[in-house]
Simulated assay, not measured.
Amino acid sequence: MIINRKELAREKVKELQNGFSAFAETKEVADLIKRELAKLNLKVHEDVTDVGSWFIPEKAN
């Protein structure tokens, strides 16, 4: 099975837009997520661990 990393990142960004946390197992996917978030100007907290990165949406003031 071939995994399209760009599509995976887009799905994770959709989760974040809906208020859910998202996890990226690789640096490549995390970088794609960050790029998409920058385009959308969506604020998140990123928690980088040894096994991947958690993206947690920040609440709007």
Rank of each mutant, 00 (worst) to 15 (best):
E15N: 09
K6M: 09
K43N: 12
V29E: 05
V51A: 11
I56D: 07
V44S: 05
E36I: 05
I3L: 15
D31E: 15
V13I: 10
N61L: 09
K27T: 11
K12P: 02
I33R: 00
D47F: 11
N18W: 05
I3T: 14
K43Y: 06
A9F: 01
L8I: 07
L37D: 01
E58R: 15
F55D: 02
K39M: 06
A22T: 02
E11D: 11
K39S: 09
R35M: 07
E7N: 12
I56Q: 08
E28Q: 08
K59I: 12
E15L: 10
K34D: 10
K34M: 09
A60M: 09
K43E: 12
V51G: 05
N4L: 09
T26Y: 00
V13S: 06
G52T: 01
E15Y: 05
E28D: 12
E58V: 13
V51I: 11
N41R: 15
G19V: 06
D47Y: 10
I56F: 09
I3Q: 13
M1W: 10
V48F: 10
A60F: 07
L37Y: 00
E11K: 15
E25R: 13
S53P: 03
E7R: 14
T26H: 05
E7T: 11
E28H: 07
D31Y: 07
R5L: 14
F23C: 05
K34C: 08
A9D: 02
E25T: 09
K59H: 11
R5Q: 14
S53R: 05
I56S: 08
F55C: 03
R5A: 12
I2L: 14
N41W: 00
V29K: 01
L37W: 00
R10G: 06
E11L: 11
A22V: 06
W54V: 00
A30E: 03
N18Q: 10
F23Y: 15
L8C: 08
L40T: 01
I2Q: 13
L32R: 05
A9T: 06
E46L: 07
A22Y: 00
G52K: 01
S53F: 04
L8G: 03
V13C: 05
F23I: 04
E28G: 11
G19Q: 06
N18C: 06
I3W: 09
W54E: 00
D47H: 10
L42R: 02
K12S: 11
R35T: 14
F23V: 04
A24Y: 03
T49G: 11
